[in-house]
Simulated assay, not measured.
Amino acid sequence: MSKPKRPFFSPINQRRLQNFKANKRGYWAFWVFVVLFMLTLFAEVIANDRPIVVSYKGEILFPIVVDYQEDKFGGFLAQTDYRTDYISDEINANGWMVWPPIRYSYGTVNSNIPHSAPTEPWWLMDAKDRCSAYPLGDSDPGCTLGNMNWLGTDDQARDVLARIIYGSRISILFGLALTFASAIVGVLAGAVQGYFGGRTDLIMQRFIEIWSSMPVLYILLIIAAILPPGFFILLGIMLLFSWTAFVGIVRAEFLRARNFEYVRAARALGVGNITIMWRHLLPNAMVATLTFLPFILSGSITTLTSLDFLGFGLPPGSASLGELVGQAKANLQAPWLGITAFVTLGLILSLLIFIGEAVRDAFDPRKTFG
């Protein structure tokens, strides 16, 4: 006689899922955020100054993943610029190429803009400038939508939309990495404090109080000014201070649950401390931790944007939302820069806050679906 199949979700997790779906704003915000994040993960296929596929003299090439020297197309440079008239006409005369929807990468400079940078979005330009501003070889006059700067260019003539796509990806990935690394360190510290209590809890709590009272932003600025800029260096610097946000809630949960009957029974049976902490106490503590994750993620993205805005974030030239905010401040005559930065950051942070509210409702035992 076959055993009955166990449901994929336990009854309590099914109730949490239903509560999450019941919060329509948070539920749809979650899917919008997932779709946008997945699109940014394929930024090279969406916005790139290299074709995705090239057919040249019967050979199929993939410039998006392979660096071909220019001599393959009759040139002499070490790196091929597919946007030049010579290369574009040569390939189109001997084959074809498939471009991404946006023919600019985050660092591509458009040297054919009709006036000095920053330039307005193409749909705000005069009709006579829309095609003449974006030539791409004699066989491609440039009137295709992929050649246009949909959101204009910044003060270095780089496509704003491409930088938004790449900048959003690195901001979200940075926020996710910082959030989960902080959660691991913070949950571990809070678990040790709450479970052992006594002198261990007292010493660690005094240390955290001193550590949390430091002026974090000033210390981040000083350290970032000394060390060379980089993704992982900046991640490590911010991790030094962000982990304390998780300690309090985990510590309180372990302090509350360490004297429950099932924990005392496990001790009496000889179960080790690590096993009790991992198997019996941590699942309860993770409920409160999960409700904090979206809010910590939004705070991490905001901190990275602030550091980039002040010039202490990612290396110069990197796709950065904070750098776009700085350009908007320095170019008040180009309002599209400020509007674009505001809408992008506002959308990302609002979606995360809505998701956080839905997760909080999902884990709230007082709320029931329906």
Rank of each mutant, 00 (worst) to 15 (best):
R267G: 07
R256N: 15
P315K: 09
G270N: 07
Y262V: 10
M277Y: 02
L321A: 05
L297N: 03
R258V: 12
G317A: 14
G272K: 07
F312Y: 15
L307F: 12
I301H: 04
G311S: 07
L255A: 12
L255W: 07
E253F: 01
G270L: 09
T305S: 15
R258Y: 09
G317K: 13
F292K: 07
L282E: 03
L281M: 06
D308I: 06
L282D: 08
G317P: 14
W243P: 03
A319K: 07
I276N: 05
G248S: 15
G270C: 10
G311M: 06
V263H: 01
V287E: 13
R279V: 07
L281T: 00
A285Y: 06
S298R: 06
R267F: 01
H280V: 01
V263S: 01
L293S: 12
T305H: 05
L304K: 03
I301Y: 01
T244I: 14
Y262E: 11
F312G: 02
R264V: 13
A285G: 08
T305Q: 12
V247K: 03
V271A: 00
R279S: 05
L321N: 05
W243I: 10
T303W: 02
N284S: 14
T289M: 08
L307S: 06
F295S: 10
L281N: 00
D308G: 11
P315C: 11
F246P: 03
L310N: 02
A285D: 00
S300A: 15
S300G: 10
Y262W: 12
L282A: 11
F292M: 14
L269F: 12
N259V: 12
P283W: 09
I296K: 10
L310C: 07
A252K: 05
T289N: 00
R258S: 03
T275H: 03
A265M: 11
S300K: 00
V271G: 02
T244L: 10
G313A: 12
E253G: 03
A268Q: 12
L281Q: 04
S320T: 09
M286E: 05
N259P: 05
A265C: 07
A288M: 04
F312L: 15
N259D: 15
T303V: 14
D308K: 06
G272Q: 01
N284V: 08
L255Q: 13
P283H: 09
L269W: 10
R279E: 09
L255R: 11
T244K: 08
A285Q: 01
I296F: 04
M277A: 00
F312K: 11
T289F: 03
F254S: 00
S318N: 15
V287M: 06
G272T: 07
R267P: 03
